[in-house]
Nucleic acid binder design. Structure first.
Length: 464
RNA sequence: GGCGGCAUGGCCAAGUGGUAAGGCGAGGGACUGCAAAUCCCUUAUUCCCCGGUUCGAAUCCGGGUGCCGCCUCCA
């Protein structure tokens, strides 16, 4: 079965065929690094990374660029509030993003291009757009002329004439049409500026993505990602300027991810309802956050709350159960077990791939993982340990395609001495059939956040 | 107002023509000294409402209702 991907531009799913056989280029609009990364940034990165992982699993070689827009009004504003250079604001937030992406097992992109490192490429593009009659310089700025491109609005299904209503020209802007957008913004006194053929200034918002995508991935890229809130105007403008420049399609698949909601409405600074990822990571195991985000389809909105995450934690523990019971933390894959479990493995693997082939449906794929987990538990309960271990390794491999199961559980050696002492005493109490003492020790351990489970193989400690 | 999307059991969430995945929660049972974990069973005759197409619709069409996003910086 072939991989099918939903494309915003054509508003339909279709079979994925890359420009170059065997190779895939992906560009994702990443952070404008004016603040610390929030949950939405992680979701968007994760959605793109999910595609990347699956494409690689299918055997494609993927070249993936995740950009940082490291200069804009708010970065400048923030730097001036803090009396530091814009670079220090950008650097700090980029570092934070990289740290938390890593913490959530988001594979590093092939390249992390930054806007300010591509000023020359942007200048070249702007010059070309002016040559071709799609852009004009005015008062130190350069604008893209929206009306010069007949298909402007095709991504977001908007028509220029309808958009004009209510649109206003900012003071100081000298545009031919209110919808024209800045490719280059002339510097105001005291602002960071780069030299250009049109005078000192800095890039407008959208041009950096076109310039960087083309430089690192080529003039037509396979997959372009980002949050759904970027469809208009950002992605719309990217298409317009890129295609006006090259005359070629800019991206074959537009894959925008759904947004993160908080108590029913979109997370945003103006409403004051948003989660920095560092605050979440302090409370929730990143592996659980990752699992939670993957358990909803990437294009659907997702509600983010501590309750949801706690629920996900219980579910995820269940999924990891067979791995812990068999200690199958290495040697993912391996031979398939026989018998009923073998059938369950084959079924789960088939359904998992069918789900992922259908526009990266990780939510459905995860569901099939639960079925496999149950089959392994059943085999284990029936004493088929080696079969179950083989099954667990297959489960580990499937989860690995989604970037799950990357952390083995804490071993006994990692427990504090205090915990180990209590545990040891409890083993002794149980040997003496002193249930009263045994239960008291279990309560004491619970108070330390340690869950005790008794089984045929003796007592097991778990963090709760 | 324009554009896009969504409405599935107590909650979360898959499912685009063939008779409702999965998770959480809840109830019952097995196992256990008791628990926990695990397994088994039960928990939507029904998918916002009304029409229509079809042998057959949660899935397609028409009309409602409600919610969300974009149209201004936002992943």
């Amino acid at each position: 079965m072939a991989l099918r991907i939903y494309d915003t531009l054509t508003q339909a799913k279709r079979e994925f065929v890359p420009v170059t056989p065997g190779q895939v280029t992906m560009y994702v609009c990443g952070m404008t690094v004016q603040n610390k990364p929030h949950v939405g940034h992680i979701r968007s990165s994760l959605s793109a990374e999910l595609m990347r992982r699956y494409l690689e699993h299918l055997g494609f070689s993927v070249r993936y660029a995740y950009n940082f827009t490291d200069i804009d009004d708010k970065i400048i504003e923030r730097a001036s509030q803090e009396s530091v250079g814009w670079e220090s604001v950008s650097e700090r937030n980029i570092a934070a993003y990289r740290q938390f992406a890593d913490l959530h097992n988001i594979k590093q992109a092939t390249v992390y291009p930054r806007a300010t490192e591509h000023i020359a490429e942007m200048h070249a593009m702007i010059a070309r757009l002016i040559d071709r009659g799609h852009a004009y310089a005015a008062g130190g700025d350069v604008y893209f002329e929206v009306r010069s491109k007949a298909d402007y609005g095709k991504l977001s299904n908007r028509r220029v004439d309808e958009l004009r209503e209510g649109y206003r020209i900012e003071p100081g802007e000298i545009k031919k049409d209110p919808l024209d957008f800045a490719l280059w913004k002339g510097a105001k006194p005291g602002e960071p500026a780069w030299e250009s053929p049109w005078g000192p200034g800095r890039p407008g918002w959208h041009i950096e993505c076109s310039a960087m995508a083309m430089k690192h991935l080529g003039e037509t890229i396979d997959i372009h990602g980002g949050g759904q809130d970027l469809i208009f105007p950002h992605h719309e403008n990217e298409i317009a300027q890129s295609e006006a420049c090259t005359g070629k399609p800019f991206a074959n698949f537009w894959c925008e991810n759904g947004l993160v909601n908080l108590s029913g409405s979109k997370m945003s600074k103006s409403v004051g309802n948003f989660f920095f990822i560092e605050d979440i990571a302090a409370k929730v195991d990143p592996e659980i956050t990752r699992f939670y985000l993957l358990s909803t389809h990437y294009r659907s909105p997702i509600e983010f709350s501590l309750e949801r995450l706690e629920e996900a934690g219980v579910a995820y523990a269940r999924l990891r159960g067979p791995l812990e019971r068999t200690q199958a933390w290495t040697a993912a894959d391996g031979p398939a077990p026989g018998g009923a479990l073998g059938e369950a493995v084959a079924t789960a693997e088939r359904l998992f791939h069918e789900a992922m082939d259908d526009d990266f449906n990780s939510a459905a794929a995860v569901g099939h993982l639960f079925d496999l987990a149950r089959a392994i538990n059943r085999a284990l309960d029936e004493g088929g340990t080696s079969e179950a271990t083989q099954g667990a390794r297959r489960l580990l491999a499937l989860g690995g395609i989604l970037g799950l199961f990357w952390k083995a559980p804490a071993t006994d050696a990692a427990w504090p001495a205090e915990v180990l002492a209590l545990a040891e005493e409890r083993v002794a109490a149980r040997a003496a059939r002193d249930w009263k003492r045994s239960d008291a020790l279990r309560d004491q351990l619970a108070a330390l956040g340690v869950l005790v489970e008794d089984s045929g193989q003796g007592q097991k400690l778990k963090r709760r």
